[in-house]
Write a protein that binds this DNA or RNA. Structure first.
Lengths: 237, 237
DNA sequence: TGAAACATAGTTGTCATACGAATTTGATGA
DNA sequence: TCATCAAATTCGTATGACAACTATGTTTCA
């Protein structure tokens, strides 16, 4: 077994066996090197790997700590990498959204209170009045994240966040298409909010499902054009 | 910005900008150090982070390569860490399963062929005849993974795999409980298979939902006893 | 007495160098 | 032409040194 594996599994075992619990500080790098029998470089590489996965957090000058090990945090560690997925992968993820977002909407419909409905309505007012892409994107994100937060499952919220972050990054180049998309999108948002306000899980779920389907339609449409573009450029080389 | 961040963002940018594509070999560590202006140690830490997240793969003596960047692979990188989640987190994940597995079953019902149904039926025969925990666990896993594979979305399969891996690790200590669980579990499996064989997405989905709910019931039951045990031990300290 | 400033020890961050281990490549020879 | 071996390339690991930051205890001053 390589030194890196030794360090990685050693650290993981310390947590899995309960010797280190969420929030605990790890022994110093020097101590761990002796304990595990690896050099500081290899140990640090292992620590970085666990940090990338959301298991450890390192503070300069202080030490490394076991994270709270919340499911939402571990899922959130994917956010660094989903942005690298090619378009084909985005469609797979959109299908996941098509299951998860309606579920979140249904749960939210059963739990939402009047104040939050009011807040969401205000967000939609802003969205509909907005022309700026950045602002629109941020408000849209806030709207959907609020809904999944109300649903009450942090892991679900985090997962939806990660999945949405990918589609969110795309900007529709054609101005006419963008306007059409915004029209459909605004209507979809209102439909979801109506379902929530009526405390009707089925209506909210159906509206959320249609909303994601709408997104999927556009992603697919522009994916196709992109693929065509790639093909033609490939032919020219 | 720290040297590690420089290296990390530099590498990520190389991939995001398309200068490095899936399958490509990265420049040697020495070259990258010069390009990015960081030491080899910092660069290697960055490479390890991306490797942990499933973006890069390193081969001793050969070089580091960009992975295929499949959504399923990125999601699969969570498998190293979900095993560290405390019980409370497992319940959050089980709720996700409660949405995803029925969806997979519904999709599978629409696509499955006779040969696969035959194969799954054979697996269930083995499961029902099995007394060994390990064997049972492995076959159970195979049954459910086959179904999500038939569903045709690799990201969905990978996600279900990750989520299931956690609940799978638990062994019911009480023999009577274990026998009762197995009874319900076997019946649940047959119900799912009936839905698939009938090419009935609704039936398959409902059966899968009930099956996960069953799991959730047991996880919750033993979580409660564990929490009580922790509380009492906490009182004694 | 209280608080601010400082000094100190401990810890992580970064770099440089060296050499071992695995792979790849090219030369050599039959 | 193919097999074999040697060299070059590349990653893996270890070590030492110092900078940057944090935490803690001490001193100093109002």
């Amino acid at each position: 077994m390589s030194a890196l594996d030794t360090a990685l599994h050693g650290l993981r075992a310390l947590i899995a066996d309960g010797e280190l619990r969420p929030g605990d500080r790890l022994p110093s790098e020097g101590e761990l090197c002796e304990t595990l029998g690896v050099s500081r470089g290899s140990l640090r590489e292992a620590i970085r790997m666990l940090a990338a996965l959301g298991v450890l957090e390192t503070r300069h000058g202080s030490g490394s700590y076991v994270s709270e090990l919340r499911a939402a945090d571990l899922i959130g560690s994917l956010s660094l990498t989903v942005g690298l997925l090619p378009m084909a992968g985005v469609l797979e993820l959109t299908e996941l959204r098509r299951v998860l977002e309606p579920h979140a909407a249904a749960l939210a419909a059963a739990r939402i209170d009047a104040a939050t409905i009011e807040e969401l309505s205000g967000v939609l007012d802003e969205i509909e009045a907005s022309d700026d892409f950045e602002l629109h994107s941020r408000l849209d994100h806030a709207f959907h994240m609020t809904i999944s937060e109300v649903a009450g499952n942090d892991a679900l919220t985090s997962l939806i966040d990660v999945l949405r972050s990918r589609s969110r990054a795309y900007r529709i180049p054609d101005a006419g298409d963008a306007a059409e998309l915004k029209l459909h999108s605004d209507a979809g948002h209102r439909a979801i909010l109506r379902g929530l306000a009526a405390a009707d899980p089925v209506a909210a779920s159906a509206a959320a499902s249609a909303h994601v389907a709408q997104t999927e339609y556009w992603v697919r449409r522009y994916t196709d054009t992109e693929v065509r573009a790639e093909d033609s450029s490939a032919e020219s080389t």
